Amino acid sequence: MTKHKIYTMSFATVYPHYITKAEKKGRSKAEVDEIIRWLTGYTQEEFEEQLEKQTDFETFFEHAPQMNTSRELIKGIICGVRVEEIEEPTMREIRYLDKLIDELAKGKKMEKILRN
């Protein structure tokens, strides 16, 4: 089976789009970074290393230090698909992140985004 092209894309090429989406709605890069660290378990330094290495999406999620167990609480529709129904694990992780960034851009409070 052919992998989706997002898997081979550098996370660093999409990351600025997450920031732009958040900033257009009055949110910050720091909040985007916090969401990514919460989801993946990367420290800020480890995350920045992944950006510098131009790590692809698949490797970025495969090497994540500790995927947050609360991510399974993320529900809803992203790109016309219900996140909780995505069977392919890597795609589900990517869509979890997309959903969290959407919630940030929609003005949701960080406590709720981070499922506290």
Rank of each mutant, 00 (worst) to 15 (best):
M1C: 07
T2Q: 09
K5Q: 02
I6C: 00
I6P: 00
Y7I: 01
Y7K: 01
Y7E: 01
M9C: 04
F11R: 04
A12F: 01
V14N: 09
Y15P: 08
Y15D: 03
H17G: 11
H17F: 05
I19Y: 14
I19A: 07
K21C: 10
A22N: 02
G26F: 13
R27A: 07
E31C: 14
V32T: 13
D33H: 11
D33S: 11
I36M: 04
I36Y: 03
T40Y: 05
Y42R: 07
Y42L: 11
T43H: 14
Q44G: 11
F47K: 01
F47P: 07
E48G: 07
E49F: 03
Q50L: 11
Q50P: 02
L51S: 08
E52R: 11
K53Y: 00
Q54F: 06
T55S: 12
D56Q: 03
D56F: 12
F57S: 03
T59R: 05
F60A: 06
F60K: 07
F61L: 12
E62Q: 15
E62K: 13
E62R: 15
P65C: 08
N68F: 14
N68V: 10
N68H: 15
T69N: 09
R71D: 03
E72Q: 11
L73F: 12
I74K: 01
G76W: 02
G76F: 05
I77T: 12
I78S: 09
V81I: 15
V83S: 05
E84T: 01
E84I: 02
E85I: 02
E87S: 14
E88A: 11
T90S: 08
M91L: 14
R92G: 08
E93G: 07
E93N: 10
I94S: 00
R95F: 13
Y96Q: 06
L97Y: 11
L97D: 00
L100E: 05
I101M: 10
I101G: 00
D102Q: 05
E103K: 14
A105T: 01
A105K: 04
K108W: 02
M110H: 13
E111M: 12
K112G: 00
K112C: 02
K112A: 05
I113N: 12
I113K: 07
I113Q: 12
L114T: 13
L114E: 06
N116G: 10
